[in-house]
């Protein structure tokens, strides 16, 4: 069993097969719902709900949450929140059958796990902020946008990956 687990742990799908499956999923998603997938929408709903629970008056003053609290609907009752729960379930399933579910911090041997965690938090903060500015992240704006040939979707894709390449040199110590 442990042999199988060790063996499977680093065996991922062929990337072209993974891409093909992801493409089919996007087609199915557009065919059924008329929209693409997303990954930050559910997070945004959670932030809005949290702020509302801790400081309701303040939350209602924020223009950014306007459409969430307009009709006193529950922002957690949202397509993207359910989809996000699905992402967690599906990823857990895939990880579980390949023996990849256990607690650890993944980092380059040249940095400590503490350094990795600090930069992960900082990167998450930037990505969260950027995704709100751009009205979507790699999933909702870039991938789903490209599927229907949205002009903005291509801009976001080029922006994300272009910037990654531009700054890769400065952060190389974190990774290689």
């Amino acid at each position: 069993m442990s042999y199988i687990n060790d063996h499977l742990r680093h065996v991922y799908w062929n990337p072209y097969f993974g891409g093909f499956m992801l493409g089919l999923l996007l087609i199915a998603t557009f065919y059924i719902t008329g929209r693409g997938v997303g990954a930050t929408g559910g997070t945004k709903s959670t932030v809005a709900t949290t702020v509302n629970a801790m400081a309701p008056e303040h939350a209602h003053k924020l223009h950014y949450y306007e459409k969430y609290f307009d009709e006193e609907k529950n922002p957690m009752n949202n397509w993207l929140v359910y989809e996000t729960l699905g992402i967690l379930l599906g990823a857990f399933l895939s990880g579980a059958i390949s023996g990849r579910v256990f607690v650890r911090t993944q980092h380059s041997p040249k940095i400590t796990s503490r350094t990795r965690l600090v930069f992960a938090a900082l990167g998450g903060l930037l990505f969260g902020f950027g995704s709100q500015l751009a009205r979507g992240c790699t999933s909702g704006a870039a991938l789903s946008g490209i599927s229907v040939l949205s002009f903005g979707g291509f801009i976001v894709m080029l922006g994300i990956f272009g910037t990654g390449y531009l700054f890769a040199y400065f952060f190389r110590k974190l990774w290689i």
Partner: peptide
């Protein structure tokens, strides 16, 4: 900003 977040946060 997202690209920066990607290369920093992975």
């Amino acid at each position: 900003i997202m690209g920066l977040g990607f290369i920093i946060g992975g």
